[in-house]
Simulated scan of single mutants.
Amino acid sequence: MVERQSNDPDLDAIFGALAHPTRRTLIEQLAGGPKSVGDLAEPHDVSLAAVSKHLQVLEDAGLIEVEQDGRVRRCYLDATPLSDVFGWLTRYRVFWEDRFDALADHLEDEDQ
């Protein structure tokens, strides 16, 4: 069984931030480099205020950093929490691989 480690990052906030498709798209946009809030909002069919709220959720989860440059707010991706999520998911990948290997062994034994 996979056990939760006491030093795990705040995975609830990270997964919560990634749960909305608009926020995942914003992360994808920022993977190409820093962008202003206006540039991020442009391809979305939502208000600038709605995009700002999504960005706040991402910032609270530690997935982005926002800098004020005069009247322009520029956003930067911080992928570090994503590597924490990847590590958590990898533990479960190993768990399921072990389960499938055990199932394959069991089915082979039944065939013989």
Score class of each variant (00 low, 15 high):
Leu26Trp: 08
Phe95His: 09
Asp8Trp: 15
Lys53Asp: 06
Asp12Leu: 15
Leu11Glu: 03
Val2Asp: 09
Cys75Arg: 00
Trp88His: 06
Val94Cys: 05
Gly62Val: 01
Asp12Gly: 14
Val2Leu: 13
His54Tyr: 10
Val57Phe: 04
Arg93Gln: 13
Glu110His: 07
Val85Ala: 08
Gln5Asn: 15
Ala79Ile: 11
Asp45Ile: 05
Leu77Trp: 03
Gln112Ile: 04
Arg24Asn: 05
Val46Ile: 10
Glu67His: 13
Val51Gly: 03
Arg93His: 09
Tyr92Met: 07
Leu30Asn: 00
Ala104Arg: 07
Glu108Thr: 05
Leu11Ala: 04
Thr25Leu: 15
Asp10Leu: 09
Leu18Ser: 04
Thr90Leu: 15
Ile14Ser: 00
Ala61Phe: 00
Phe15Leu: 11
Gly87Asp: 04
Leu82His: 03
Leu58Lys: 03
Gly16Arg: 10
Val66Glu: 04
Ala50Leu: 12
Glu108Asp: 12
Ala102Lys: 04
Ser36Met: 13
Asp105Arg: 00
Ala50Glu: 13
Val85Trp: 06
Ala19His: 11
Ser52Phe: 10
Gln68Ser: 14
Thr22Cys: 15
Thr80Ser: 14
Ser36Trp: 11
His54Gly: 00
Gln29Leu: 11
Val94Leu: 10
Gln68Leu: 13
Gly62Trp: 03
Leu63Gly: 02
Phe86Pro: 04
Arg23Trp: 01
Asp101Gly: 06
Leu30Lys: 06
Leu63His: 06
Asp98Ala: 12
Glu65Asp: 12
Asp84Tyr: 10
His106Lys: 09
Arg24Lys: 13
Phe100Gly: 06
Leu55Asp: 02
Ala79Val: 09
Trp88Asn: 02
Val46Gln: 09
Phe95Thr: 04
Phe86His: 08
Gln5Thr: 15
Glu42Asn: 12
Ala61Ser: 01
Ala49His: 10
Ser52Leu: 09
Gly70Ser: 01
Arg74Asp: 00
Tyr76Leu: 08
Val57Lys: 03
Leu18Lys: 07
Asp69His: 11
Arg23Leu: 02
Ala41Arg: 10
Gly33Gln: 10
Val37Trp: 01
Leu26Val: 03
Met1Ile: 10
Met1Arg: 15
Ser47Asn: 04
Ala13Gln: 06
Pro34Leu: 01
Asp8Cys: 12
Thr22Tyr: 14
Thr22Leu: 15
Leu58Trp: 04
Arg99Phe: 11
Leu63Asn: 02
Leu11Thr: 00
Gln112Pro: 05
Asp78Trp: 05
Gly16Trp: 02
Ile27Asp: 03
Gly62Lys: 00
Gly70His: 07
Met1Tyr: 14
Ala104Met: 08
Arg99Asn: 07
Ala31Met: 06
Asp45Thr: 12
Asn7Lys: 13
Leu89Pro: 02
Val85Lys: 05
Val37Asn: 01
Ile14His: 02
Arg4Asp: 08
Arg93Lys: 10
Asn7Ser: 14
Leu55Arg: 03
Leu40Pro: 02
Ser83Tyr: 14
Ala19Gln: 09
Ser6Pro: 13
Pro9Val: 08
